[in-house]
Amino acid sequence: MNTAATWPDDIFRVLLDMDVKQVAYVPDAGHTRLIELCRDSNALTAVSLTTEEEGIAFLAGAWLGGQRGVLLMQSSGIGNCVNMLSLARACRFPLPILVTMRGQWGEFNPWQVPMGQISADVLGLAGVVVYPVDDTARIADTVAAAARTAFDGPGLSAVLISQRVVGAKTFGK
């Protein structure tokens, strides 16, 4: 990944502008900078999860309590979420998900490919509006659009940030 990338900072500003108070995450290398920004901020609470589906329930609770949140994960986590997405669907909880893709572009680890290749379809089947983006200059406005879809719907949305942007992990090979 380009260490000078500013798109995570751009996303962070969007989250502040959208009055997001809770950021739930399972770490991904592609989200490293954004997670750091969230953890260092007093304007919102960053909550580390043991599995991505926890985040869907967590953000439902936050919304019941009057706070907006977003969920960060890598694409492998989408499969962990499928049944819990029913909670957001059935109750129409706003749920913006920011996904960094694996198994998509020059992937070194073949075990990432199956979930990465079905991520958009799985989300679509589950009723999530999917916003793929592979241009760093368009990430922030895509996140803003997805967040509006979620909070103004209310509904479910996911931004799939391409592995072309995140950079393919190579394990030094």
């Binding site: 108070k21 809770q22 609470t45 909550v47 589906e53 926890e54 985040g55 869907i56 329930a57 967590f58 953000l59 439902a60 609770g61 936050a62 919304w63 019941l64 309590g65 009057g66 706070q67 949140g69 049944n83 819990m84 029913s86 909670l87 059935a90």
Partner: peptide, 22 residues
Amino acid sequence: TFPLWGAMGGAAMIGLGLALAQ
């Protein structure tokens, strides 16, 4: 009272989100 008809495994996490927000 928010009764769940699904979301098995999620009750405590809904509680956490609510507790942090309130």
